[in-house]
Write a protein that binds this DNA or RNA. Structure first.
Lengths: 232, 232
DNA sequence: CGAGGTGTTGAGGCCCATCAACCCGTGTGG
DNA sequence: CCACACGGGTTGATGGGCCTCAACACCTCG
């Protein structure tokens, strides 16, 4: 079904979950891991499905979205190289809480849930690191919650772009470029607004020279001005 | 400074973080714990302060709120008996991300951050349970995020009450009562609306007989109808 | 009894979701 | 090689949900 690709323990060291672990532990994790290419557009898993694997990304980008029963969706986060995803259900109810889609060609590692659990039991440091990772995401979610409840759409869009810069900003000639393709709808779904409002806001900022958008890519020319907007 | 109260290992068994651990581990955790009464109204810790202790609640209720630089705040969650709070910063940046206030007389246990960390290192099950706890809270936060971005105020208030029923519903004569005092402002700050809108919605529902509010307490007479509203 | 925290209700208006129409670039198959 | 479909983006018009402002009633506690 899936091609068997030997997993190098060196690759594991780039995954935040396994950072600074002794080589023996990395080897152990590598032995249980399965590598797999994710062509652009591939749905890695579906919301509600039982979590058959726990995932980590070696390269590329994956979009995590959550849909309600009415079809309205939000963008939970983008997963980049070194980040884990779809790992929490291994320890809770066993169901993926969201959809995951590769938005560019990517490569993932994955583990059988019981293997990962066993690894965490044997090496408490892995479990502790996971608390830190999930804890930071919780903090970010609560921050977004507060912003969504209290701030205007343009402030939220500005914060959204600043966060994306933090996560995936690549310095270049005209400004800092966000490393992955980003549709207007994506920006809207993170900021908690509609495609139309996000489009108007970005068009206005492009007119003002704060940013440049080409194809599905954004280059931020003036993060300072964005910060000013995001603070009211 | 603080009265020394002997901590019973039996009390530890009621804390979800330590559920189903061998007695030896409970004794270990109990030996490092400090018990303390929290009189109603006491601020347990402040947002931004360095996390001097990690906390768990034995009895009573604690309100966790987060304020932005502009003063606007949201209610992150209520902490009830058996739940932990202020524990994540032990593993991340060491700063409390929110305020915590006892809303009724309560009793907490607390640990020195490095003691709790050492305990998690020695006993991976503790760390794993914490991932599960934090993971569930993350899932809930993302669900609220989606609802806030896509649903109307009354649907969100209905969902809010249903969640509070789940967490703290006590069956009684006129319906199910929420176990702790709850102001209109609290409901608004969870649902992501204003005191005024929340007040109007609850008044209307009280007129319709869906609920009764007395003092600062809510009794839900018809959860079914609330569920219908929450689903549109 | 006074003060402060809390809750209710009205009036007004604005932000932004919604509806609608159209444009553009890309890829694909006849 | 062109027609066409399709995903994505832009922009205008409109209206309503709910935030904001304001005034007042209520309760509880010192």
């Amino acid at each position: 079904m899936t091609a068997l690709i030997p997993v190098d323990a060196n690759a594991l060291a780039d995954i935040a979950l396994f950072a600074a672990l002794p080589p023996a532990v990395l080897d152990e994790a590598a032995a249980m891991a399965r590598a797999r290419p994710l062509p652009r557009g591939l749905r890695v898993f579906d919301q509600g499905e039982t979590a058959g694997r726990a995932h980590a990304l070696l390269s590329g980008w994956v979009r995590i979205t959550q849909a309600g029963s009415d079809g309205e969706e939000i963008l939970v986060r983008f997963i980049g190289p070194g980040e884990i995803f779809g790992c929490v259900p291994v320890l809770t109810d066993g169901l993926y809480p969201a959809d995951a889609t590769a938005i560019v060609d990517a490569v993932e590692l994955s583990w059988d849930p019981s293997d990962l659990l066993a690894l965490m039991q044997r090496h408490s440091q892995v479990a502790i690191t996971m608390v830190a990772i999930v804890g930071r995401r919780l903090g970010e979610a609560q921050e977004r919650l507060r912003e969504l409840a209290t701030q205007s759409a343009d402030r939220r869009v500005a914060r959204t772009l600043l966060r994306l810069l933090d996560q995936a900003g690549r310095p270049g000639g005209e400004g800092i470029r966000i490393a992955f393709p980003l549709r207007r709808k994506d920006v809207a779904d993170i900021a908690g607004t509609t495609l139309h409002t996000a489009s108007r806001i970005l068009a206005e900022w492009e007119r003002r020279g704060l940013l440049v958008s080409r194809n599905r890519h954004l280059i931020i020319a003036s993060p300072e001005e964005l910060r000013r907007i995001s603070e009211g």
